[in-house]
Simulated scan of single mutants.
Amino acid sequence: MVQAHASAQLIGDRSHQCDATATHTHDGTRAYVLCDGIGSSDEVQAWTRTAARRIARAAARSGDAEAGLRAEYDRYAAEPERKSPFADLPNACAAVAVAVPGKPLTVAWCGDVRAYVLTPGGTLRCLTADHNMRRVFGGSRNRVTSYLGAVESDDQCKGRYNHPAIESATAPADTSRLLLASDGAYEPLEDSCRDLTRYLGWRSPRRAADTFVTAAIDHASSHADNATVLVADLPLRTPGSTNQGAASE
């Protein structure tokens, strides 16, 4: 049996690996999370790993990507020390997808982590729109406009950047594979005009994930970022049945 989901990451030229992935299953509902920590330090690395696990647990239990991400966004925003303009606390971009057997996949995000879905016919669709200055004002893609650990409400973020703090989407009914990717994974390939689907064609999610991050580092510029992806085969089976995933290679 082939594993139905897998993640892979490479550190690139950074001092720390500050991306993190997590999954959590609750009563047949499964959540997939990728967080991209902002900065490089032991503190950011540890915080991001914990945040990914918390989002996955909250999203699986709620059965909805936006509800799970929003619960953790609000919880971090409520921390008193984050209200200070001088606060220097860990933050991260995040994307979460929730698969409930028999229902459409839901996706939510803050920041520039992306969620893609692949159809059985090989069509790749990006469900997310980056929260960064390139989207808002045509500025730098490296300056994010929303992230986990921020304190802005949806209305405040809309007033400043014309998008809410958290956005959500629903995947097409014929989705067969999910891809969550940090900017260090998708940007080098996008910048090199590579077709992302060529790295997802492996039947094994493990092979697809490993191939994707390796290609990202190989095509990076002079400074390679952390590259992390999570690949999952869909749909989930109904509770009580076995998810066989994809056929073996």
Results as ranks from 00 to 15, higher is better:
18 C>G: 07
192 S>Y: 02
209 A>Y: 12
130 D>V: 05
247 A>K: 04
72 E>Q: 14
114 R>T: 03
237 R>P: 00
169 A>L: 11
108 A>W: 02
7 S>Q: 15
79 E>G: 00
193 C>I: 02
92 A>W: 02
218 D>M: 11
1 M>E: 08
78 A>E: 07
32 Y>L: 15
222 S>L: 09
7 S>Y: 11
57 R>P: 01
65 A>E: 12
87 A>F: 06
171 A>F: 07
175 T>V: 14
236 L>F: 06
205 P>M: 08
235 P>M: 13
241 S>H: 14
243 N>H: 15
163 H>E: 04
1 M>I: 05
143 R>C: 10
110 C>Q: 06
73 Y>P: 01
4 A>P: 10
130 D>R: 05
46 A>H: 09
136 V>D: 07
43 E>S: 05
185 A>T: 01
105 L>H: 05
80 P>S: 10
11 I>L: 14
73 Y>K: 04
72 E>Y: 13
216 A>Y: 05
143 R>P: 00
35 C>A: 15
76 Y>P: 07
181 A>S: 13
188 P>H: 09
55 I>V: 05
1 M>A: 14
247 A>S: 11
34 L>K: 12
173 A>T: 08
29 T>D: 04
131 H>W: 09
22 A>G: 10
150 A>R: 03
23 T>D: 09
79 E>Q: 12
126 C>F: 00
231 V>G: 02
98 V>H: 09
225 D>G: 03
216 A>W: 00
49 R>M: 04
72 E>K: 11
29 T>Q: 11
118 L>A: 03
139 G>I: 02
38 I>M: 15
72 E>W: 07
159 G>R: 15
91 N>W: 00
42 D>H: 08
211 T>H: 14
23 T>H: 05
194 R>M: 10
75 R>P: 00
13 D>C: 09
39 G>Q: 01
165 A>W: 12
247 A>V: 07
107 V>Y: 02
77 A>I: 05
223 H>N: 08
27 D>T: 14
171 A>P: 05
45 Q>N: 11
245 G>E: 04
82 R>L: 01
68 G>E: 11
115 A>H: 03
205 P>S: 07
11 I>G: 01
182 S>A: 01
39 G>K: 06
224 A>R: 13
163 H>A: 11
75 R>F: 01
147 Y>K: 04
90 P>I: 06
129 A>S: 13
34 L>F: 06
49 R>T: 04
136 V>H: 05
169 A>D: 13
63 G>V: 06
147 Y>P: 03
165 A>E: 08
209 A>F: 10
57 R>N: 01
71 A>Q: 15
34 L>C: 02
216 A>Q: 08
240 G>Q: 01
242 T>W: 14
28 G>N: 08
81 E>A: 13
14 R>D: 06
57 R>V: 08
67 A>T: 15
